Amino acid sequence: MSTTLPTQRPDPAQLRRWRQHLADERAEAAIYNNLAHRRTGEEREILLGLAEAEKRHEAYWLALLGDRVGKPRRTDLRTRLLGLLAGRFGFVFVLALLQRAEGRSPYDDDPDATSTMAADERLHGEVIRSLAERGRKRLSGSFRAAVFGANDGLVSNLSLILGVGASGVPMAVILLTGVAGLLAGALSMGAGEYVSVRSQRELLEASTPDPRAHTLLPDLDIDTNELALLFRSRGLDEEEAARRAEEVLAGGRDQRTAIGGDVDTHEAVGSGLGAALSSFLCFASGAIIPVLPYLFGAQGIVAVILSAGLVGLTLLGTGAIVGILSGGSPLLRGLRQLLIGYGAAAVTYLLGLLFGTGAAG
């Protein structure tokens, strides 16, 4: 990293900016060290490498400041929040937040920062993106079922309660409808998710190479070389397939891996039981929310407002979490969830009013 330092005396604004950069670099290094101590193997080494890079940036600002370091400054709110979350929340959640933070390098427009430092920060964002992608793959199956289940429970039961309530039925019927919708929906979601994930895994497993295929090698006809056809069926061209077959037969490649293929545990799909349980619990936790005001005795328009308000806040929250974990905007994802949920509930409420009026007539 270039360490050519400004020769002119810094003004007060520069000193404040340099001290802030110093505080931020120290805080970010601490975050990476904190995360590294919770991981093992390659992920730990990568995070420690990022912490070391932040230390190099810290050294640059210390050299600029010299004897003008002054009192330690507090880092910005974003970095303090990341530091707090790093010790308390899931690894993937914190990495997703770091990915968004590293994607906005403060050095791009700072005349006192080197171009190398700005490039470092951008590259850190890509490293974090790759680490976060690993974690997303590990949780994507169950996470998808959990998010889908929670939002389905929120929207479907709110729509059900509002639609039935708008028809003018007694309060006891509305409450019974909400509880029945919760149980029926949760059981249906759990069973459906189990069948869906199991079916997907079975389809993937049917395409996985037979791990015992390498045992056929001693009996292959070397002249016709059926092995080359196997490699061609897996996407290699004729020349590359022939070369790979010769290497395997000559012992130049591990036969078990070359013939049977790498073991694929289909982590991104998740387990059927795990997805079913997540879906059941999350649907139930979502579906109970619109029922809560009725359980505590609220009636009429007050119950409707409370139910819709609780669901709205929860939709905003789940949408924001999805946005964070996917690297998108939490606000936009939350508003999208809110509009979709309220749109479905509004349509059902209007239909309930229509049918209730028709029945009364």
Results as ranks from 00 to 15, higher is better:
326 S>N: 13
311 V>I: 09
309 G>R: 06
248 V>C: 01
319 G>N: 01
297 G>M: 06
230 L>F: 08
312 G>W: 09
295 L>M: 13
306 L>K: 00
274 G>S: 03
302 V>M: 02
300 G>P: 04
219 D>W: 13
300 G>F: 05
334 G>T: 09
285 S>V: 13
227 L>H: 03
325 L>A: 05
304 V>P: 01
279 S>C: 13
294 Y>V: 11
245 A>Y: 05
234 R>V: 02
335 L>E: 02
303 A>C: 08
310 L>E: 04
232 R>T: 04
293 P>L: 13
248 V>R: 05
300 G>Q: 03
294 Y>T: 07
261 G>C: 09
318 T>N: 13
315 L>T: 00
270 G>N: 07
302 V>N: 00
296 F>Q: 01
239 E>A: 15
335 L>K: 01
252 G>Q: 06
314 T>E: 13
223 D>I: 08
291 V>I: 15
259 I>M: 14
250 A>F: 00
291 V>F: 00
337 Q>Y: 15
240 E>D: 14
286 G>R: 02
257 T>R: 11
298 A>K: 10
275 A>V: 01
337 Q>R: 06
330 P>R: 10
251 G>F: 01
286 G>F: 06
332 L>E: 12
321 I>T: 14
272 G>S: 11
267 E>M: 11
232 R>C: 07
223 D>G: 11
298 A>F: 10
317 G>K: 14
243 R>F: 06
308 A>I: 07
222 I>K: 15
313 L>Q: 06
267 E>I: 11
266 H>T: 03
237 D>P: 02
241 A>L: 05
251 G>C: 00
237 D>E: 07
330 P>A: 10
314 T>F: 02
253 R>A: 11
225 N>C: 08
312 G>M: 08
